[in-house]
Design a protein around this nucleic acid. Structure first.
Length: 608
RNA sequence: UGCCCGAUGGUGUAACGGUAGCACAACAGACUCUGAAUCUGUUUGUCAUGGUUCAAAUCCAUGUCGGGCAACCA
């Protein structure tokens, strides 16, 4: 078995329904587009987080439900904030999340490919069609030629075309070069006042623009503005900026450009160039939509225009989501990095042991609306537990060990007992677990003074050792400070599975490991990063960091865990779900706790 | 302040003029060699006020509350 828990439970829920999918479905019904084409357009200025996962699942989900394509595109028009590190992490995260689910919908392009000039209705047009899915095999037949390298789309691959579009706008008298300072621009726009440069002639504007492109002017000295209105109630229609000067090198285009397009200009045209039909973004872009439409219409483009639709971004309880704040946590070393398992980043969630199926299931459960709510973490946690319950291999491990000696069990004797790998999956089979005279059990599973309804081990009481015997606690050994160090028990030697008294009812069943056979593992117990549901609420989110969000312990594990695999998921029975951390080395196991099992007992205890 | 958007149990969502449903959470019980899972049941809701209509969560008006925008960021 290459993947020990690659069961295929029903992890792909039925396609959800929401207002955006309703719109797409209507467009499909009326044959509005030859094919549905969405895109996921992150700016490579940070790592992707679970909010992006929502958007990825939406965009790729629509593509797969309607037989379309979803392009991965770097929205990289601001070189001073972006970096290749982020480009790479974004690709890895997207691939991980859609792998074996929407691979067939992933729109990529050949490396280095830029838009083609085509003629549509007698009009020149820029178009860069997507290549779908994974790189094609070498077509030479010799096997020596490398497969064509594929890469995501980059808005920066369209800088030539975007420049040409800006020139066209200028020629049409619909854009002009403005020499106002940033402060003046702000002031004029605020008061709905026309720029004194608003009525320069197209020829003059073109001349200035070319000189801007040639790098003749300093940053901030001039911009290109769309000529729309000076006093629209929508600020984004008050002659918005479409090009600015930045003497900065770009991670993808190098030192080629000294001017860079603004988001509003680049995004709608990038969508158009790629043949996007449905451009889905978050609510804060709602007021930009008229500008999105204006630019495309002002250019008189020959192909069907894309349209923008907005939905509410994800807010999750007990975490922060803004890139700025996540960056702060990383920079100030409040976490170990972007992929710290406590981070809401996709890479952190992945390292924590969550599967892409669980994340997708979560994304489908929360729905898509225009309402800004805060999703309860319990929804995420439920999706994770549900997924892990179905796929995890069960193992016995003791986190806080206390020694147990079975006084009527012969020293030196060892039995190999059968244990079920996954009761949810009959195909997962069984394994052997060694049983011997000296064991470890969980400290919490013994109480000298048991609270009401405690049905684990107590003095004079009986408990079932999972897969083994019923034992009775005969004697409690303590050290000089009164700390319990050892429990002397007797076993009902007929009570083993299949034995004469195996059917005896005892209320509790606990987990255990043989002391001599156990293997040590570093176990990282993660908890939520913040102590309050809304860390942002009062402005200082760092104040609410959970000081106990990570506890590192050494656990006693059953020997089968020596062969733990990085891609596998484990449930340490009665405790939690775990997976191997990349820090693991041969002979040195490191497990991350993904999430605890639901614990109604601790709730019971709290109630008193 | 101006403009835009939104409001359905504790939370997130469905109902598209005709029985307010689902999920999570919570609570109670059943089952259990995992106090998990599973199963059964229960509690809790249409922001307010008017209007249109045989009928309003749904349409209209006003108000209230919440969010967004007013970067040479995206």
């Amino acid at each position: 078995m290459s993947n020990p828990n690659a069961i295929t439970p029903d992890v792909v829920p039925a396609a959800p329904s929401d207002f955006i999918r309703d719109i797409v479905a209507a467009h499909v019904a009326e044959n509005k587009y030859p094919r549905i084409h969405t895109r996921f357009p992150p700016e490579p200025n940070g790592y992707l987080h679970i909010g992006h996962a929502k958007s990825i699942c939406l965009n790729f989900g629509i593509a797969r439900e309607f037989g379309g394509i979803c392009n991965l595109r770097m929205d990289d028009t601001n070189p001073t904030k972006e970096d290749i590190e982020y480009v790479e992490s974004i690709q890895a995260d997207v691939n991980w999340l859609i792998s074996a689910w929407a691979d067939d919908q992933l729109g990529l392009k050949l490396k280095g490919k830029t838009p083609e000039i085509v003629t549509v209705n007698g009009q020149p047009d820029f178009y860069l069609p997507a290549v779908v899915g994974q790189p094609a095999k070498s077509t030479t037949g010799s096997g020596s030629a490398p497969a064509p390298a594929m890469e995501p789309f980059y808005a920066s691959d369209y800088f030539d075309q975007l420049y040409a579009y800006a020139v066209e706008l200028i020629k049409r008298g619909k854009a002009y070069v403005c020499d106002l300072t940033p402060e003046e621009t702000d002031e004029y726009r605020r008061h709905g006042k026309a720029s004194p440069f608003r009525d320069r002639s197209p020829a003059e504007n073109l001349d200035w623009f070319i000189r801007m492109k040639n790098g003749e002017f300093s940053d901030g000295s001039r911009v290109v503005r769309a000529k729309i209105t000076v006093d629209s109630p929508n600020i984004w229609l008050r002659d918005p900026l479409i090009y600015r000067i930045k003497h900065a090198d770009h991670h993808h285009t190098g030192a080629t450009w000294r001017i860079y397009p603004m988001y509003d200009f680049a995004h709608c045209l990038s969508d158009y160039i790629e043949g996007i039909t449905h451009s889905i973004c978050t609510l804060e872009f709602e007021v930009h939509r008229p500008l999105y439409d204006w630019i495309l219409e002002a250019l008189g483009l020959p192909r069907p225009l894309p349209h923008q639709y907005e939905f509410a971004r994800l807010s999750l309880g007990y975490t922060v989501m803004s890139k700025r704040k996540l960056m702060q946590l990383v920079d100030e070393k409040l976490v170990t990095g972007w992929d710290d398992p406590r981070m809401p980043t996709i890479s952190g969630i992945r390292r924590r042991g969550v599967t892409p199926e669980a994340l997708r299931k979560f994304a489908y459960h929360i729905g898509i609306t225009k309402y800004n709510g805060i999703t309860d973490v319990s929804v995420l946690e439920h999706a994770i537990r549900d997924d892990l319950n179905q796929r995890s291999l069960r193992r016995l491990a003791v986190l806080q060990p206390v020694k147990v000696i079975i006084t009527n069990y012969p020293a030196g004797q060892v039995e190999e007992l059968d244990a079920t790998n996954n009761p949810e999956d009959p195909h997962a089979g069984k394994r052997k677990v060694p049983f011997a005279r000296e064991l470890f059990i969980e400290r919490d599973d013994f109480a000298e003074v048991p609270p009401p309804k405690f049905f684990r081990l107590k003095p004079g009481g009986e408990v079932r050792l999972k897969y083994a015997y019923i034992i009775k606690c005969e004697e409690v050994i303590k050290d000089s400070s009164g700390h319990v160090v050892e429990l002397h028990c007797t076993a009902d030697l007929e009570s083993k599975t299949g034995g004469a008294t195996s059917a005896r009812k005892v209320k509790g069943t606990i987990h255990w490991v043989s002391a001599a056979h156990s293997v040590d593992a570093e176990v990282r117990l993660y908890d939520r990063l913040f102590t309050v549901a809304e860390p942002d609420a009062d402005g200082d989110f760092k104040q609410h960091l959970n000081p106990n969000s990570l506890e590192v312990i050494t656990a006693k594990c059953e020997p089968a865990l020596k062969d733990a695999l990085p891609e596998a998921r484990y449930q340490f029975e009665r405790l939690a779900y775990f997976s191997l951390d990349p820090d693991s080395r041969p002979g040195r196991l490191v497990f991350n706790r993904t999430i605890t099992l639901k614990d109604t007992w601790s709730k019971e205890v709290k109630k008193g």
